[in-house]
């Protein structure tokens, strides 16, 4: 097996498994940059996956055909934002502990999604969809030697969308007034408030955006990878996205890179047995790699990761 064959096996797989992580991690960036911890990414992603699976299924029934996954993405984003609004109300308006509220979101999403699945389909899982996002070669770009084969052939459109959205999030956060406000609210809400920025409103927008993007991540996972929703569809991808966000130092492009890297680790752990040299590495090391790396990054051993300063503290007007 030549080196190119190995890359051709691993890289597209990595990009595929990274896409849902990228969306969800970007959601996390919005929420945490505004100062609200979002442990609930896992639950938001899970509910997005459920909504995605249901919408695609009924979209097919209604004859939407190939458009149904794309319709499901929009629906999952809306429902994800609505679901995240519970977290927003609890942690911003009611000043609940943000971590506890996030944990409750995870419980609620898992319970409600399976409850509704059983109610609607009378079974523990949704029917398998036939209209998945299909793999395709990107015209022209896939003809580029080396790079074309690795990055632009036989890949899902959603993966490129994920990279594109990461660039948009970077632009919004660092090049627009809204982004500056969002970041300032997460660093020093009192100073932001003094400058006339509405802290509560800005944080609400941050959390709702995180819900929308995590919902999208879940729906993309169903449309490109799993094909239906069961209780074991989303088991930890949300937390891995959280890890990617932290490993990427709360920066959209960092999160993108980290998610791609974690996707690579997953891809190797799945297809590593076919690769000479990697066969001997126990799979477990690849499975735990993202988590170990995140811990090391936080400990400052792999580049220091500093959280937004006001992360996790509710803002109370007039409090010193």
């Amino acid at each position: 097996m030549s080196f190119m064959d190995i890359l051709a096996l691993i890289v597209p797989a990595a990009i595929v498994s990274a896409a849902p992580l990228i969306f969800t991690a970007l959601g996390g960036v919005f929420s945490e940059r505004s100062g609200v911890v979002n442990i609930g990414l896992e639950g938001l992603m899970l509910f997005g996956a459920f909504i995605g699976a249901v919408t695609i299924y009924y979209g097919e029934q209604l004859g939407l055909g190939g458009a149904s996954p794309w319709v499901s993405f929009v629906v999952a984003m809306i429902v994800g934002a609505l679901f995240a609004s519970i977290h927003a109300v609890a942690s911003i308006s009611l000043k609940a502990d943000q971590v506890v509220s996030g944990v409750a979101i995870n419980f609620l999403a898992a319970g409600l999604a399976i409850f509704l699945t059983k109610k609607i389909f009378n079974a523990g899982q949704t029917p398998v969809i036939s209209e998945r996002i299909s793999k395709s070669d990107i015209p022209f770009l896939s003809d580029i030697p080396v790079i074309g084969k690795l990055f632009f052939s036989n890949a899902y459109l959603t993966s490129y969308l994920a990279v594109f959205v990461a660039l948009i999030v970077w632009y919004v956060l660092y090049k627009t007034p809204f982004g500056l406000r969002l970041r300032s609210v997460g660093e020093h809400p009192m100073a932001a408030d003094t400058m006339g920025i509405n802290v509560t409103k800005t944080r609400y927008i941050g959390v709702l955006l995180s819900g929308a993007l995590a919902g999208l991540g879940g729906a993309v996972y169903v449309a490109s990878i799993s094909g239906n929703f069961t209780h074991s569809t989303i088991t930890g991808q949300g937390f891995m996205a959280l890890a990617a966000m932290i490993f990427g130092k709360w920066h959209p492009l960092g999160a993108l890179g980290a998610a791609l890297f974690f996707g690579l680790a997953q891809a190797i752990s799945i297809s590593g047995t076919q690769i000479p040299g990697l066969q001997d590495i126990p799979k477990v090391f690849l499975l735990i790699a993202p988590y170990v790396l995140t811990i090391l990054a936080l400990a400052g051993l792999v580049g220091r990761a500093d959280a937004p300063k006001a992360l996790g503290t509710p803002y109370e007007k007039g409090k010193r």
Binding site: A104, L108, G111
Partner: peptide, 22 residues
């Protein structure tokens, strides 16, 4: 009624305890 309803109830209880404000 699917057993998962209990999971939902537990989640709601955590919410209300966390939001003791309400």
């Amino acid at each position: 009624v699917p057993t998962e309803l209990v999971g939902v109830v537990i989640a709601l209880i955590i919410f209300f305890v966390a939001c003791s404000y309400i």
